[in-house]
Design a protein around this nucleic acid. Structure first.
Lengths: 126, 126
DNA sequence: TCTTGACCTGGAGCGCGCTCCAGACCCGAG
DNA sequence: CTCGGGTCTGGAGCGCGCTCCAGGTCAAGA
């Protein structure tokens, strides 16, 4: 018990965070401004220090962005997970989002079917 | 053989086309300007007359838009199907687009997994 | 101490995909 | 012939999601 756990907490510079997450510095700041991540802890000099948890959360945000969710959606996601809500509320919200994603998958499948049809048509005469 | 087939070709007013396709008048004009549809035949007075084929094609465009393809992608799609290209070129192009859609589906699935995980977590204490 | 480069903030700019608008034209009903 | 609604064109405006920039601060190395 010579050290506190916190003393061991490694943090990342903005550049390192950008590197690890694949998100640009500008976008990291933008996400923070929009309330999607953070607020990120600052050093004495005012520089951001991203914790491992921050990095993880940024990964989640990126995952949802890649799935096509908008900034507002993500903000809702943050709100429901951070603020105090009943498990029912959370599950309801999450299930609704999930359904929306399923609709997107369905739209993609429809487009793929059209593509497959065309491919079959042009591929017929080998 | 008292009539030519063309005489029977029913056309649609812009309003009717918008109604049938669920695409706004402005967007129909926008798509035409961008070369995604048409050019649409005009009446003597200069009004657009959408054929049944036009309507069908607009449906395809809508399908791809809903799947998240951009205007430029759609333009490529039009180009490859309309201009003279070897079946191989067409199939290659179509297959590439299909693969892109599959990546999008994968991204959606990843996001859904995260959602499922959270739902399981909050749903645990029934 | 001085230099250098990473980082800070606030705000402007941009590409996309529409959406809206003004001002003019067409045309069928009355 | 007049009226009114549908349509035309060209261009401006908008929301989103970044991206870029200027001007200044901080901090580690020579």
């Amino acid at each position: 018990m010579t050290v506190h756990p916190k003393d061991r907490m490694t943090t990342h510079s903005p550049a390192a965070a950008a590197d690890r997450t694949g998100v640009s510095l500008d976008t990291l700041r933008y996400y923070e401004r929009e309330g999607l991540i953070g607020p990120i802890r600052r050093s004495a000099g005012g520089r951001r220090e991203y914790t491992e948890d921050d990095i993880f959360w940024i990964g989640l945000v990126t995952c949802f962005r890649e799935a096509g969710l908008g900034i507002a959606d993500l903000r809702g996601f943050v709100a429901i997970l951070r603020a105090e809500h009943s498990p029912q509320d959370r599950v309801a919200f999450l299930a609704e989002r999930r359904a929306a994603l399923e609709h997107r998958v369905a739209a993609l499948r429809r487009a793929m079917e059209v593509l497959d049809e065309k491919i079959a048509y042009y591929g017929a005469d080998s």
